[in-house]
C-alpha cells in the first residue's frame, strides 16, 4: 500500500517520526509496507462518516461503505458476510482472524479496511471448498486438527502462508511459525501432524 490511503491529515511516517518510535511501531504493525519517500504526500482527508471503498478479495473487486475506523476483519464479516475469519481477541493475539494480504499472513483485526484498498486480500473462502479442499485443509480434516473449529480457518490461513515461505519445515520451525495462532480446545497435536503432512504434499 501507499500512504495515499492514510485516513487522517497526518502521514503515518510523519506521525511515527513525531512519536520517535518509527521502527518499533513498524514492527508491531505487520501490515505496514516499507515506507517510501513518495509516501510523504499529504492525502485527502477521508471520513469520519462512511466512505465507499473497493477491496480486492479472493480475486474479486468488492465495493462497500465503511467508516475509516472499521477494521478489515469487521468489514469482511459484517459488511461482506465473509465470516470464515473469526473475531476472538480483537487485539492481534490469537490469529483467528488471519487472512493473507499480498500473500502475507495478517491479523485482519489489526488492519483497517481502508488500509487494505488496492491490495490482494485472500480469505479462507478463497482457498478451498468443502468438496474441493486444499492440501492444508485436507490434512486438517485427516488429522483432526480441529474440535470446535473456531480457530481453524485462522490456522488454515496461517499454515498456508507459512508453507509458502517454508516448504520443508522442521517440527520446531512449524511450532514457531504458527506460534501466532491460539486454539482453546487443544488441537495442536493434530495441527502439527497436518502441517507436516501438507508440506510433504507440496503445501497449499
Amino acid at each position: 500500500m501507499t500512504d495515499n490511503n492514510v485516513t487522517s491529515g497526518v502521514s503515518r511516517r510523519g506521525f511515527l517520526k513525531g512519536l520517535g518510535v518509527g521502527t518499533v511501531a513498524t514492527g508491531l504493525i505487520p501490515s505496514v509496507a516499507p515506507e517510501t519517500e513518495a509516501a510523504e504526500q499529504r492525502p485527502a482527508l477521508r471520513g469520519p462518516g462512511e466512505i465507499p471503498i473497493t477491496l480486492k478479495i479472493n480475486g474479486q473487486n468488492r465495493q462497500l461503505n465503511v467508516e475509516p475506523r472499521v477494521t478489515l476483519l469487521d468489514a469482511l464479516r459484517n459488511r461482506l458476510d465473509l465470516t470464515g475469519a473469526k473475531k476472538v481477541c480483537d487485539r492481534g493475539t490469537c490469529g483467528a482472524c488471519t487472512v493473507m494480504v499480498d500473500g502475507q499472513p495478517v491479523y485482519s483485526c489489526s488492519m483497517l479496511a481502508v488500509e487494505a484498498e488496492g491490495r490482494m486480500i485472500t480469505t479462507v473462502e478463497g482457498l478451498g471448498t468443502p468438496t474441493q479442499m486444499t492440501a492444508v485443509q485436507k490434512a486438517f480434516v485427516k488429522h483432526d486438527a480441529q474440535q470446535c473449529g473456531f480457530c481453524t480457518p485462522g490456522f488454515v490461513m496461517a499454515c498456508t502462508a507459512f508453507l509458502s515461505s517454508h516448504p520443508n519445515p522442521t517440527l520446531e520451525e512449524a511450532r514457531a511459525g504458527l506460534g501466532g495462532n491460539l486454539c482453546r480446545c487443544g488441537t495442536y497435536a493434530g495441527i502439527m501432524e497436518a502441517v507436516l503432512e501438507a508440506a510433504k504434499k507440496g503445501g497449499a
Binding site: 465470516t83 471448498t129 468443502p130 480434516v141 480441529q146
Partner: peptide
C-alpha cells in the same frame, strides 16, 4: 469428523457468523 470440511474451509456458520 464429518463436518471437518465445512470447518476447515470456513463454510461452517457459527452463531457469531449469522448475519
Amino acid at each position: 469428523r464429518t463436518d471437518g470440511p465445512v470447518k476447515a474451509t470456513g463454510a461452517a456458520k457459527y452463531s457469531y457468523d449469522i448475519n
